[in-house]
Design a protein around this nucleic acid. Structure first.
Lengths: 231, 231
DNA sequence: CGCACTTTGTGCATGTCTTCACAAAGGGAT
DNA sequence: ATCCCTTTGTGAAGACATGCACAAAGTGCG
């Protein structure tokens, strides 16, 4: 049995568990009862050895010669990720992105509940969205405490992000999902995850450029030497 | 000098270059002419040794005893990321998320231009957004070719994402930014980057749960829950 | 010029992540 | 019960990433 359930799941593994969970939910919907690491790995788009090692960090939940019980594995991963409880989430900033997030089905479905919406713009305050009224940012501290919010999503313009972060941290929040394109300055013990649209595009552009270079470009590359000389 | 500009910048480095670029742009706006690796590292939220090693992969652009010239470094990173040219981007799926993306200032500002918007819903087609009409998804292949689109952003519902991916790849696209919560199946040579809202939340929940466990919790409880589930 | 000071660029050690490859474990058929 | 087949869980090796610590390189002052 070894040290399977000792605390300390690698970050890289934690980052992939949601992926496995989604693949498993897909299988469950199609009525699949058990799945091998090989099949699940394909569904999740990873290498099967990696998948097995990842799952081994949670415990020994497979059956040799058979595979993993889909429902049981869903439960185990959900529990490990903390999705067997409900997390109350607040969204700050109700622009297009905030609306997209609020409407996003995946939020509500599994473990997360949008419990508050905030904006600084008084022409938006009062509007109802997914059954919730948009509240003024002045209510932030009160609402976080009274509604037991534990995760805050920042979807404000860049300039507003740091002040909002400071305020929610002062109210006891230690988990922030930041969509604003700034590096948030936070004290130890506060987790910030950043989702950045333009960063992702820039990484794509880098690879796209390299592909273009490879095709038409560098005379130094051996494959192209012959053609370069023909010209 | 050594082998600075040989091809092969580590992925981890590429992923951080956009971060440095943003920090540098912030400094440039405030009129800073040069910056040390230490100060830039703080602005970008990384370790200064890592920053220097990352930059060393691009070449030797610093001056010992002084630091880096802000404007020059901005140019060098931009060039490496391929931002000195304009990339025509198409957004497929004009729901709240698609609108948020289209309106997002960061897109246009630096190297990227929204050149087409598509949706399958005929009640959305024809609407104008950031000066572009929303076009019907049937036009996808034609527009990609005639407008020289090189990057496609998928912001559709989950079920539509794979068919859209298949079609854009058949039209010659090799760079996709996917916001739909599915693993896209693509041939070799096609780059897909995935942005997943619920994955990020789940990772936060994991860490939040661990913080809670550490304060108040018995580590044995989890084991018992699992057994209760078996019954 | 020479010296003191700053800051880069990098060799090296350390740590983390990935992948291979296989022994051990279970299922099912005869 | 025995054998064969499938599939897990993991030790070990390799690849990759990080961070320390310092020599080399530059600035500017006296």
């Amino acid at each position: 049995m070894s040290q399977a359930r000792e605390r300390g799941i690698p970050d890289a593994t934690v980052a992939r568990l949601p992926l496995y969970l989604r693949a498993l939910n897909g299988l469950a919907e199609r009525g699949t009862a058990t799945v091998s690491s090989e099949d699940l790995a394909v569904a999740a788009g990873v290498n099967s050895a990696k998948l097995r090692k990842d799952l081994s960090h949670l415990g020994s939940y497979g059956t040799r010669g058979v595979g993993y019980d889909v429902q049981y594995l869903i439960y185990q991963i959900s529990r490990e990720l903390g999705l067997t409880q409900d997390w109350a989430v607040a969204i700050v900033g109700v622009g297009n992105l905030g609306r997209a997030l609020a409407n996003y089905g995946g939020f509500v479905s599994r473990g997360f509940r949008v419990a508050a919406l905030f904006d600084a713009d008084t022409s938006v305050v009062g509007e109802r969205l997914v059954g919730m009224p948009v509240e003024h940012i002045d209510e932030l501290e009160d609402v976080i405490r009274t509604r037991d919010i534990s995760i805050v999503v920042i979807a404000t313009p860049a300039a507003a992000a740091q002040p909002v972060a400071d305020r929610v941290i002062a109210s006891g929040i230690t988990s922030i999902l930041n969509f604003a394109p700034v590096v948030l300055n936070v004290p130890d013990g506060v987790d910030v995850r950043k989702v950045d649209l333009s960063t992702e595009l820039q990484i794509l552009a880098f690879h796209e450029q390299r592909k273009a270079d490879r095709e038409s470009g560098s005379p130094i590359m051996a494959e192209n030497l012959a053609e370069a000389m023909d010209a």
